[in-house]
Design a protein around this nucleic acid. Sequence first.
DNA 1: GTCGGTGCAAAGCTTTTGCATCTGC
DNA 2: GCAGATGCAAAAGCTTTGCACCGAC
Lengths: 147, 147
Amino acid sequence: MNPHGQTLNEKPVQSLDDALERCQQLGMRLSRQRRFILELLWQEQEHLSAREIYNRLNQRGKDVGHTSVYQNLEALSQNGVIECIERSGGRLYGNISDSHSHVNCLDSDQILDIQVELPAALIEEVERKTGLKITDYRVEFYGCRVT
Amino acid sequence: MNPHGQTLNEKPVQSLDDALERCQQLGMRLSRQRRFILELLWQEQEHLSAREIYNRLNQRGKDVGHTSVYQNLEALSQNGVIECIERSGGRLYGNISDSHSHVNCLDSDQILDIQVELPAALIEEVERKTGLKITDYRVEFYGCRVT
DNA sequence: GTCGGTGCAAAGCTTTTGCATCTGC
DNA sequence: GCAGATGCAAAAGCTTTGCACCGAC
């Protein structure tokens, strides 16, 4: 298991349908509330906080209690159905594309997903230095608009 | 300014003395409380939460109010005197070595610092894809103990 | 029908804010 | 002396927990 709740070799969850299917494989029921949360995360490109997910759903008339939001986000991210990243102010959740690295725009709050592959030599060097077997990684880039 | 409050070319803060010096350069007074916080962060190798910093200082008889701890950590990290990273459960603060990437041990809570340099070609590719000028990056590695 | 899921209410924490007091320079 | 720093008290948020009820399968 990597920190996203998946092994690297496992078939990735790349769409809403994949997510729903994965839930069923895991024995997680597809409740109305769970669907709402997954639908929201696959509609939005951004990463959202639990509180924000709760607010958006309820603003749109899709009533879900905050307890359920928290419990679902925890369960879904633990099982690799959605992604959980940490930022100032707490955890943010988003759908899982095949990209696990992010480009953070310093001029706005925008966070872009990007696919990055590090050279094997670099990873081996890290393993040698730390004595750990590296199972996963993600890169956070910080950039600004070119004006 | 990068997210660590420094430009990449700026002389890095690499010791307690550097940190104290930097505070003075910035016009930040070296109050008793500010010193305690900086001393703690340069004693410890780990990254600590605001709450934990507050607890440790007060356990050791170095009384600092929690408001001061929060205000100081905010100001110091904004100014690049200390480092702020985000994890489940909130922000963690640590001293700044010249390493900005981390290796997260999945078998324990240990977070190791490591120096990583990405190939220029990789960075250029990210810039081309996103249209942003990349000013900084950090890599989060996840690894487990080899048994 | 069963067991996982839900959500109210309440508690528990962490973090922020207002503001009077203090202190480094 | 004065602007910056401190820290109490209180408010504001966010997240978790207990538990009775609900509903997906």
